[in-house]
Write a protein that binds this DNA or RNA. Structure first.
Lengths: 209, 209
DNA sequence: TTCATTTACTGAACACCATTCATTATATTT
DNA sequence: AAATATAATGAATGGTGTTCAGTAAATGAA
């Protein structure tokens, strides 16, 4: 009997499979960040890792599934940023830190931000999986807002509505800038970051009770 | 001498050229709206108007220039919507109407909204032309806000900052919805429109003095 | 060790895409 | 009627995502 052998081998196989997925994902992430999702082709990724295009399809169903994996990674990075920079004990101050971190994250990782919040969501991805991707980082915002509400620091009663509004404001500012739609206003390119932060701060002072 | 003839002919030619551009633009617009920008190919457009692909390049430099023309058209439609639905004499009420109109426009014309505000701006397009596209509809918002400020109806002093904030909120709400990023919140799909409007209204009441 | 089977991988092929350009057809001018 | 200028073509170029028959290597059973 080779049962002991079989077990060991299948475990190694599983490990190797995971390593291969990581190899592909790593190359994809790097190239998505450098050249953007659209300009990165399966062929390019295959070239980079020195495998044939077909091989990638043995590990990922299609390009969207690859995007999906990269998205998960990106949401993780955002949550990390929140945990690092939004540490104030005071809920409202922490909320301000979350917003500032969000905006910085967007401006400093434009391609990543694109993948996370602007790119058309792959329609084939099942909803539950998609939801779970952004959940954790969104929860950070919700928790902070919940504390603000219970301590009566902001004008909202409904946490969901509060989260929607704050997120929409931050996303609106970042995405309009990333898509160059602010050119219609004549803001100096150098000061744009300052302007966005100022807008966010003003908004936050509006919702403070 | 055939000078009289030359003039007549060159005018007709100019007219025909314009008609041809309109023919292409019309087909492109229709197909962009139905299938989206990415899925509409030059070949498809050529097929639809019963010309060869090459012909389109005699009238438009590339696909981006075509997008550009469609964008101009779309911004015109938005301005029209503002003029139709934001008619209140009272500046703040009018501001609320502008915002409501903007959100409705986005939800009802998702593909158009995409072209206008979400799609990556063609980088080859020169900035001045790009700016002029959105200018008029943006001016409508700015003018309304200016009145609000002079009458002391809102908390802002700076018109630019006010416009940025209001626009960001509206765009944030619409674009997060269009890109399905609100799935992370568990809002009933049917009531989403109501939720967005409610958020906008709450925001407006925050900035009211 | 030998042979059958499973697994991993390849790369050519398919059906698309935007764009270019030599060639052809038509319209205008001389 | 011939020469010229304009308009349109459609095949060709170099890309894209994805599939799949075929090959090579690793594994399992005898």
């Amino acid at each position: 009997m080779y049962l002991w052998k079989i077990m060991g081998i299948s475990e190694r196989k599983e490990r190797e499979r995971e390593e291969m997925k990581q190899l592909i994902m790593g190359a994809a992430l790097k190239m998505f960040l450098e050249d953007g999702y659209a300009k990165t082709s399966i062929r390019n990724i295959a070239d980079a890792i020195e495998y044939s295009p077909g091989t990638i399809y043995l590990y990922y169903k299609d390009k969207d599934e690859l995007l999906f994996e990269v998205q998960r990674h990106a949401y993780g990075k955002l949550l990390e940023a929140f945990k690092t920079y939004a540490t104030s004990k005071h809920p409202f101050e922490r909320l301000a830190q979350v917003c500032k971190t969000y905006i910085s994250f967007g401006l400093e990782n434009p391609e990543l931000y694109d993948l996370m919040f602007i790119i058309r969501a792959p329609m084939n991805a099942d909803e539950s999986q998609f939801k779970s991707n952004g959940e954790d980082s969104f929860k950070f915002l919700v928790d902070t807002l919940a504390e603000c509400i219970t301590q009566g620091l902001i004008v909202f009663n409904d946490i969901q509505l509060a989260a929607l509004q704050v997120w929409a404001m931050a996303h609106g500012l970042v995405s309009l800038d990333l898509r160059c739609r602010l050119k219609v206003m004549m803001i100096n390119d150098v000061t744009i970051r300052e302007t966005l932060n100022q807008s966010m701060e003003e908004y936050l002072s509006c919702i403070r009770k």
